[in-house]
Design a protein around this nucleic acid. Sequence first.
DNA 1: CAGCCTAATGCGAAGAAATTGCGTCTGCCG
DNA 2: CGGCAGACGCAATTTCTTCGCATTAGGCTG
Lengths: 192, 192
Amino acid sequence: MSARATTRPGGRSARVQQSVHQAVRDLEAEMGRDALTVPLIAARAGVTPSTVYRRWGDLRELLSDVAVERLRPDAPPADHGGLRADLEAWTVQFAEEMSSTAGRTYIRDALLGDPGQGNAARCSDYAAEQLKVIAVRAAGRGEAVPDLETLLDVVVAPLMYRILFRPSELSQEYVGRLVAAALGRVGSPSGT
Amino acid sequence: MSARATTRPGGRSARVQQSVHQAVRDLEAEMGRDALTVPLIAARAGVTPSTVYRRWGDLRELLSDVAVERLRPDAPPADHGGLRADLEAWTVQFAEEMSSTAGRTYIRDALLGDPGQGNAARCSDYAAEQLKVIAVRAAGRGEAVPDLETLLDVVVAPLMYRILFRPSELSQEYVGRLVAAALGRVGSPSGT
DNA sequence: CAGCCTAATGCGAAGAAATTGCGTCTGCCG
DNA sequence: CGGCAGACGCAATTTCTTCGCATTAGGCTG
């Protein structure tokens, strides 16, 4: 289980978590991610190392928590008036963010320090939520929309696979082809 | 770059690498992966910790190396007489191996301790090589075969995405659907 | 085949990080 | 207002990590 705020926003636990997360972000920007250590972060956050170890277990889990937080979308997908436009815009932005050096690092961090796969699932849920918004919006316009599972399989999965396993450029044309493939599968069966 | 045998098979370096790799496999089986430490592995391998640190840098990279080694296919894909049968058989086996607890751990280890993405790329290359064998074999029979990039996008990527990000069962029916989707895309454009 | 040369390993010490027990304090709840 | 549970600070201990130096194995040349 990840360390989430279990107390109210004003509580001490919440303050400590916020302070530690902020320390991670600051130090990451200042000295680079590989220079991070628990004692260093703790000192910057104004807490003792043992506090960090007790709450997060180890550095990997802490970084995983921070990374997931950074991967959370900050706004609903933009509305471009049509399913294809919405999908393409969202996918291009997604690909850019995730394939950047920082994005890849966050994904890897999120995947790594993650005993129960919970953080990885949250990453996927973020994408799924965004896609669902697009899908519902399109359905409201009366458009036929691909299944959510299909979108994840056809659009998101290939992007993430390339980002994680096959360092290569993700051209806009390629992204467009993925979206086209998804749109060609309206109504396809899904599920595992 | 990963620590590979740069000397001849009989050299001392090669012996040390083999010994350390074997120690990792043994200890992983005996005490569980989370109990592994560099000093522990070094002691079992009959070397000093500093040797391990010098050759591999840290525990993550060592585990990454061992994981990639374990993910290497031990045999070419079986020949079932037809493209669809070959693809389905290979994909089912791939999905089973990779979604097992051990498989997931190896994938994560391979991804993690990997500065230049080299080990992750090797994982992808393993799958690509196997698929290429199947594709060439089918082409030799005169069958129309999907592009290799398409196979990776449509078959491998969704499997890996689900394994890494969405802990769920991979039914044989689902695998069959992925293969069917790939076969329906014979001659599709590819590339990034 | 003998002897040198490079590179990797062993060893040991010093520094840093991780783990743990115990006392204290915060803040929630009766 | 006072108790109680959980979280935190502190400090000692253990373990891991890094580094310089000496040694040795194995390749390479003459």
